[in-house]
């Protein structure tokens, strides 16, 4: 192939690379980089879904995942005998995902009337409140201690806590949810949501119930984040107030911004970049200063690539086309082409 690769081929190549990656990587790369990227990507995906398609930036996505983590711990096997219930392992996952979805809907109900900066503020307030509750409450959150000794289950003789099975589990969840978001964006609900993002008043007058659509979007985001939360608690083996701190919430926003919110793939690209910076900045600079370096890199990316890495790739591709061949059909990063969506959505 001499010309540029189409998105389809690039995607396929990435998929193949992701599937065969554990064959030639060390456990550090499989788990710390591979699996963790998928987990962070899934949580960021819930934010990209809300922000990219719904125009709603929620800071509460990480605590939604955190709640799911706490539910997995509280209703499963962990190290504190004084607290929690030992339900069979499948049940606590169902409960965790249900709790995350419900929490997402609840956040949506609270935040639904707010737009823009006010929505960021109210969801940030929820996140901060959740953190302080988790830190003080003994009965459910086990206060400062949190829960430890949580392990991924063994399924049909396959221990999901081993690096390779755990990586594939995360990969499977990541790809499924990515596909789910891409598909959901093309359903009537997804299209209506994008319409609401671009012009809520017009959608209202067309007969759409704006509030209900937005709350449902929050519920879906809660569902996605909850799956990320389940994987995250298995990855870390523990959950404590630090896991749901404001810093971590901001990291998720950072990941989404780094990757770009114009396409769901941005969540994973951002997560990979963020994860690499977090893990390797320390090798280039002394240990007491590496946070400064992370900050500078993030600042530079936001300054020079305002629409994230996905935006950069899009721009490169557009340059490409201009030189090579007549423009083809546009890539399915729907949210950038709002006029098209509105056409599709007119009755």
């Amino acid at each position: 192939m001499t010309g540029s690769l189409s998105p389809k081929w690039t995607g396929l190549a990435c998929l193949v690379a992701l599937v065969f990656f554990p064959w030639f990587a060390t456990p550090f790369w499989i788990v710390q980089i591979g699996a963790q990227t998928m987990i962070l990507g899934i949580i960021a995906l819930s934010l990209v879904w809300l922000a990219g398609y719904g125009g709603m930036v929620s800071m509460a996505q990480l605590v939604t995942a955190g709640l799911a983590s706490y539910v997995v711990a509280y209703f499963g096997v962990q190290s504190d005998p004084a607290l929690g219930f030992r339900l069979p392992w499948g049940l606590n996952i169902v409960l965790a995902i249900a709790a995350g979805t419900a929490f997402g809907i609840a956040v949506g109900l609270i935040a639904v009337r707010c737009f823009g900066i006010y929505m960021i503020m109210i969801t940030l307030a929820i996140a901060v409140g959740f953190f302080y509750l988790a830190r003080q409450n003994m009965g459910f959150f086990n206060a400062y201690n949190g829960f430890h000794g949580i392990r991924a289950p063994t399924l049909l003789g396959l221990s999901l806590r081993d690096p390779i099975p755990f990586y594939y589990l995360c990969l499977l969840c990541g790809i499924s949810l990515f596909g789910f978001v891409v598909a959901a964006a093309r359903t009537p609900l997804g299209l209506a949501l994008q319409g609401i993002r671009d012009n809520p008043r017009r959608m209202q007058s067309l007969g759409y119930n704006v509030a209900v659509h937005r709350v449902v979007a929050f519920g879906i985001a809660g569902f996605i984040a909850a799956i990320g939360g389940v994987l995250r608690v298995w990855y870390a083996g523990s959950v404590s107030p630090g896991s749901v701190g404001v810093g971590s919430s901001i990291s998720i926003l950072m990941i989404a911004i780094l990757g770009g919110m114009t396409h769901p793939i941005g969540a994973f690209v951002g997560a990979l970049l963020f994860n690499l910076i977090q893990n390797f900045a320390i090798d280039f600079i002394d240990r007491e200063r590496f946070n400064t370096m992370i900050g500078i890199i993030l600042l530079a990316i936001i300054l020079f690539m305002p629409s994230g890495l996905v935006g950069l790739v899009d721009r490169l591709r557009q340059d490409d086309r201009r030189g090579d061949r007549p423009p083809r059909q546009t890539a399915p990063n729907a949210s950038q082409q709002s006029p098209k969506i509105k056409e599709g959505n007119h009755p």
């Binding site: 550090f28 710390q32 870390a236 404590s240 630090g242 896991s243 893990n279 240990r287 007491e288």
Partner: peptide, 22 residues
């Protein structure tokens, strides 16, 4: 090799994981 933490359990786990795996 130093693993800096901030007194929260999760920072200790992250730092320990890094020390072992990397």
């Amino acid at each position: 090799f130093t693993g800096p933490t901030n007194a929260t359990p999760d920072s200790a786990i992250n730092a320990a994981r890094r020390l072992i795996e990397q």
